[in-house]
Amino acid sequence: METVSALVLIFLSAAIINNFVLYYFVGICPFLGVSRKIGMAFGMGLAVTFVISIAAFLSWAFTFYILRAGAPIPTQVWALLGGDPETTVDLSVLSYIIYIFVIASSVQFVEMYVRKFFPALYKSFGVFLPLITTNCAILFACLEILKHLQDPMNLWGLHEALALAIGGGIGFTIAISLMAGLREELDMCDVPKALRGTGIALLVAGILAMAFMGFTGVDKGLANALAMLSN
């Protein structure tokens, strides 16, 4: 029960309370660039969620088994090569390179999948699908997972990593869809010339972020409620 409530908290925190776009500012480029039409925005959000889940799975596996200080596989390889078994083998300096390649591969994989099974969607995405590689939100999720794999006494399992990733992806989808809906309405408004396009989108995003600030502290209340439930 405690695990489930912890997972629910991580998921809700990533999706709504500490929304990746409106609180952590990651994924702004597609947030401003792709949010013109709701259909497109929602599709982009789902694609990002898909990629982020695969990337989180792979980066958790790489970090847990290979990259972190004292990881099992390099330690065994080092011992096999005749090294001193007491030394801590730390390959974490390669983390960022591995992550960006994991992300690029995940995007390639998703691209192939969408091309095969949803060819119309693939055409409508155009160049935006490979551009998901430079979406900061995915690298940010991998970095958060890395952060939680640093303290050997408090390591995150795969379930927590996936809860964060899927929550983050869904939060991104919520934010981008909201933005698309707002911008579709703005298209029919008389916006001052200087603010048309990105300017007004940023101002609206600011107000949206303020609205989402209303969720601060909800995770504390939720944690208390869940703790009371499990007692």
Partner: peptide, 10 residues
């Protein structure tokens, strides 16, 4: 003793 817990925001 190092300790941590949930605050208002994080």
């Amino acid at each position: 003793i190092p300790a941590s817990g949930g605050g208002f925001a994080d």
